[in-house]
Amino acid sequence: MARIELTGIQKRWGAIWGVRDVNIDIADEEFIVFLGPSGCGKTTTMRMIAGLEDPSEGEIRMDGELMNGIDARDRDVAMVFQGYALYPNMSIYENIRFPLRMRGVDKAEHDTLVRRAADLVELSDYLDRKPGALSGGQRQRAALARAIVRQPQVFLMDEPLSNLDAKLRQAMRVQIKHIQRQLRITTVYVTHDQIEAMTLADRIVIMQAGLIQQIGTPDEIYNDPANTFVAGFIGSPPMNLVEGDLQDGRFTAPGIDIAGLTLPRNGKVTLGIRPEDCTVGGHSTQLKGDVYGVEPTGDITYLTIKAGEKLIEVKADRSYRSELGVPETVAFDPARIYLFDSETGQRLR
C-alpha cells in the first residue's frame, strides 16, 4: 500500500519534451487513471513511477521515500504492459512465478501464491500452456496474474486492454476494478479510452502535451471541465463547442441565439453543450438548423444539425426519425451550458 507524490516532474530527451510539469498526489489505495491522446506524456509519467525512466527534473516519492535514481527492480511496483510482455519461453505458471523468484519470496510459498493469483483471474486451467497457445484475453489475464502475484505496493497498467475486442474489454474492465478493490492496492492506469477512465477511476488525470489539464473524479471531469480540451475529450459523442459572441448575457452564433446567461462579460466566447443536454423540437429558438444526419443505434438516436457552418451533435429520443435537410430546432438545458475563453480555452465562470 503506498501513497505516490509527483512533484514538478519533467522529462525531456534533448529538445523533445515528454512531460513538462506534472504535480500530483496519489492517495493510498486510490485508482488513478491518466487519460489523454497518444504522445501526451501519460505513459512516460507511468514509466517514471515504475523506475523505467528517470525524470529530468522533479521528485517521485512513495510513502514519503524519495524514489529518484532507484532502479525499477528495487521499487515495489508491478506493471502490466500494453503488449502483455509475457515471457514466451516460459509456461504461464512460470510467467506468474517469475516475480516471486526474482524478489526472493520463500520457495515454499510459490505454488500457493501462483495458484491464488491464477484463480483470481480465472486462469487456473491454463497454467501449463505457453503464452503463444493462449488467446488475447487469456494472455492479458496472465499478465495481470503476474502483476498481482506478489501483492506489490503499486500497480501500474499501461493501456492493458487496448489490444482486446470491445466485448472482452468491457469484461476485463470489470475484473480489473474488482481485483483492485479486493486487493486494495494503489493503482495507476494509463489509457486513451475515456470510457475506461470514467468507469475505472477514483480520480482521472487528463493530460495533453506533457501537461496536466485537469485532475478530478469522473463526475467532476464530466460535469465541470476546466477547459475546452477536457470538455471535448470526455463524453461520447464529445461536447459541442461553438464560437460566438456574448453581449449582456446573450450568446449568438450562426443559427444559435441563447439569452439569460449570467456571465458578466462581453466579447468572443466558446459555448459548450453536451449532446445529452439538448432537447429536440418544441418551440425553442435557441438553435435553428437543418438536419444533417440521423443515426439510430437502437437505444438512442444521434442527430446532427447544421447551424450556420457548424455541425451540432444531439442525442435524440430512440424513436426520432427525420429526413435530411428538414429544419429542426433544439433547446439547451440552461444549467448545462458551459462557456470558455475562445483564446485560452479556459472555462469562464
Partner: peptide
C-alpha cells in the same frame, strides 16, 4: 520487444 525487458525489470530482475 523492449517491453519484455521492462517487464522483467519491474518483476525484479
Amino acid at each position: 520487444p523492449k517491453e519484455l525487458e521492462d517487464a522483467a525489470r519491474t518483476d525484479g530482475a
